[in-house]
Design a protein around this nucleic acid. Structure first.
Lengths: 135, 135
DNA sequence: AACTTTACTTGCAATATGCAAGTGCAAATA
DNA sequence: TATTTGCACTTGCATATTGCAAGTAAAGTT
């Protein structure tokens, strides 16, 4: 995962070069759900990412400017991660993935409820979500 | 890649369990671009997938019903792959990924031209693209 | 009959993943 | 002040996956 050379200029390929693995988008998801997360928060997620993998993914996402580190107001021992604008702009991607998954898998009720709102006014939902995340 | 257990019920996680790697969505892309591809067509793509990886990914995508095999009209030695409806329904995901990539990377002119059409009428573009692919 | 094309398979070295344990610093507790 | 706890990683190592090169088998061509 360390050397992620660009395989081609195709937009799909370029995107996958950065976050095309089984874990990166789950980190993005956590940050979209919670806006700010500590290292420990990510470890608590139900998919149970290994701590060394988490560290590697966080570093990669930071290097690629999808996330950034912030000081925790309470303690210097803690680190806060949050999405950059580049990361926040993945909201439409995440929503379309979720809509696809809803059609073909069974997903939790709270996610369904969220997608119900999405379907009422997708553009509005996205705009509001982005606004909330960039503030 | 053989044992892809479901890590959680999260729609993002469930989706990544199936196509969350560096190659699967490129196969999907090729099929969206060309509608039908042979094994050799995939190998010709600019990212240069290794033949054993291609075989493994095609099998996985077929097992998960995103693609299906068809007989080639010209020859029994050839195999045609095409998207199922489940695969075609990834069109919105691919479009949003492309739009994101366009914002943050430089992408080929022909892709830009396509995205220009998308931006004029996203819903219409998606509908037409899906219609073309399922026929 | 020999050669080529097509769709894979196989062997193996290099890389990545996943699990468990360890480290170092900051903050809370005794 | 000394000690323990919490937090963010790092390290070691076994296992799994990737990527490259070469090989195989069935079909089509000359």
């Amino acid at each position: 995962m360390l050397k992620s050379k660009k395989r081609s200029d195709c937009p799909i390929s370029s995107s996958l070069d950065i976050w095309g693995d089984k874990w990166s988008l789950l980190i993005i998801r956590d940050l979209m759900d919670a806006k700010e997360c500590t290292y420990g928060d990510f470890l608590k997620s139900p998919e149970k990412i290994a701590t060394n993998i988490l560290a590697a993914r966080l570093q990669n996402l930071e290097e690629n400017k999808l996330i950034e580190k912030l000081e925790h107001p309470d303690s210097k021992a803690k680190v806060l991660y949050k999405l950059t604008r580049k990361g926040v702009d993945l909201v439409p991607v995440m929503i379309e993935i979720s809509l696809w998954a809803e059609k073909y898998f069974s997903i939790p009720e709270d996610r369904k409820a969220m997608l119900k709102e999405v379907k009422k006014d997708k553009a509005g939902f996205i705009k509001a979500a982005i606004k909330e995340l960039v503030s």
